[in-house]
Design a binder for these strands. Structure first.
Length: 415
DNA sequence: CCTCCACAGGAACGTAAGGACG
DNA sequence: CGTCCTTACGTTCCTGTGGAGG
């Protein structure tokens, strides 16, 4: 027993790994050379140099879909700028904030203030007091502060007061200067902005077009050379990864995931070459993993709503076999939801709330909801599942609170 | 052309949990 | 302790609306 396990370990260790350095394929990795992003890099640098002269750089808005290199370029330029300023003895700091995580005024300000050594509690203070603290800390010396707000649209949704305050801050600062770089993947997010904020924030705008398949291919070749050992990639692997990712609106991140996961799959199968079929498997795996993760971590009420939709979907499928066309509407979902709530003794939320939960599911890409008018028969949302029914059912039923609903009969309303 | 269904989705508010501070 | 703050999650009440059927 032990010896066979020993053998296994030895064999696994000795079998030449196909990876040279897997880290290069993770999105946390910032490469030294950003392929196909020269113009954007230069543009950004050109605007930001003034920081090195001790002047305030224009505020910048950067647009582009996910995986178009916005974050990578911005962070890269920011890093270089900081290095440069050190060498030149100019006080200039770049703070990177991801608004997906830090998504409220308070947290943002607290975060900034903490960067200057202020001690701000997680919660509890009035917001303007935090702002005051931050301002004081910042203004103690001559310096230029550049705040990178990644996913800035997430912040705007909860009120744009901070942006207003930040963009007007320079007027009240004696020594320090602040400039803001907003990074967004939503092109229309400025629509919700106060016009004043909009104009001051968008002094400069840089747009990142999606990569096309050729460009993604170049990126992959560049990374693969570092990440993989020579001759382990089948010739068609990278083109295929690139093509698949290009379909997903030119998402380079997705392409890198594909390339990495393909390799992992090949490795696990103890094969020495990565082939096209591994990429196909990887494609499926990534998608399923994503869904499973999202569904598993849903709040219970959302799970129940989703479960109602899943159940309706199953019963609709049965009906369709009898040739009866049928779609799922909000009302139907809510009815089933209510019955199921009763049968497992959970609080029943109002329909208003349930529609919100469904919108969230829609945004997560788990379901697809479309408002349609059925004329005389009202106006509703037609809902369809955009993920495999069976997988979703399996994940949901794992939840101990939903487990009692196993085998629930939608049509009859009991087991 | 008008009506009226079956909801969508905005606005305002309530409650609880979590923390700072005097 | 009570007073201030925050966020998360709900509720109540509300106005708005595309188009089939009259």
């Amino acid at each position: 027993m032990t010896s066979s396990l020993n053998q296994l370990f030895t064999r696994l260790l000795e079998s030449e790994s196909i990876f040279k350095n897997k880290e290069v394929l993770r999105h946390s990795y910032t490469p030294d050379v950003l392929v196909h992003r020269d113009t954007q890099t230069e543009e950004l640098a050109t605007i930001l140099v003034s920081a090195l002269r001790g002047e305030t750089p224009s505020n910048i808005l950067i647009y582009g879909k996910t995986g178009t290199g916005k974050t990578a370029v911005t962070r890269y330029v920011g890093k270089e700028l900081e290095n440069m300023s050190e060498r030149m003895n100019v006080k200039c700091s770049v703070i990177y904030v991801n608004c997906e995580v830090i998504d409220t005024q308070y947290r943002l300000l607290a975060n900034l203030a903490r960067h200057f050594g202020e001690d701000i509690p997680m919660t509890g203070w009035p917001t303007d007091q935090v702002f005051q603290k931050f301002k004081e800390a910042l203004d103690t010396q001559e310096q230029v502060l550049i705040v990178i707000l990644d996913e800035i649209d997430k912040l705007v949704k909860k009120g744009d007061d901070v942006l207003y305050n930040l963009s007007r801050m320079n007027a009240n600062l004696k020594r320090a200067k602040v400039s803001i770089i907003g990074v967004s993947n939503d092109l229309k997010f400025t629509d919700f902005l106060d016009p004043r904020v909009k104009s001051s924030l968008g002094e400069e705008e840089i747009i990142y077009p999606p990569y096309d398949a050729d460009q993604i291919r170049d990126i992959l070749y560049q990374r693969a050379a570092i990440a993989y050992n020579d001759n382990v990639l089948d010739g068609s692997v990278i083109p295929l990864c690139a093509a698949l990712a290009a379909q997903e609106h030119g998402d380079a991140r997705r392409a890198l995931d594909l390339l990495r996961v393909s390799g992992e799959i090949a490795e696990r199968k103890e094969e020495r070459k990565v082939t096209e079929s591994h990429v196909r498997i990887a494609q499926d795996k990534i998608e399923v993993d994503r869904i499973v993760e999202v569904v598993r971590t849903l709040p219970t009420q959302s799970k129940l709503v989703l479960f109602s939709i899943v159940m309706l979907n199953l019963s609709v499928q049965n009906q369709n076999q009898l040739g009866q066309p049928s779609t799922i509407t909000t009302g139907e979902v809510y009815n089933i939801y209510r019955k199921m709530c009763k049968s497992i003794d959970m609080d029943i939320l109002t329909q208003r709330r349930v529609t919100d939960l469904m919108s969230e599911l829609d945004m997560l890409g788990i379901i697809n909801a479309m408002v349609v008018s059925k004329g005389r028969y009202g106006r509703t949302k037609e809902i369809s599942l955009s993920v495999p029914v069976k997988n979703t059912y399996d994940v949901l039923i794992e939840d101990y609170k939903l487990n009692p609903l196993q085998g629930y009969n939608v049509k009859v309303g009991y087991f």
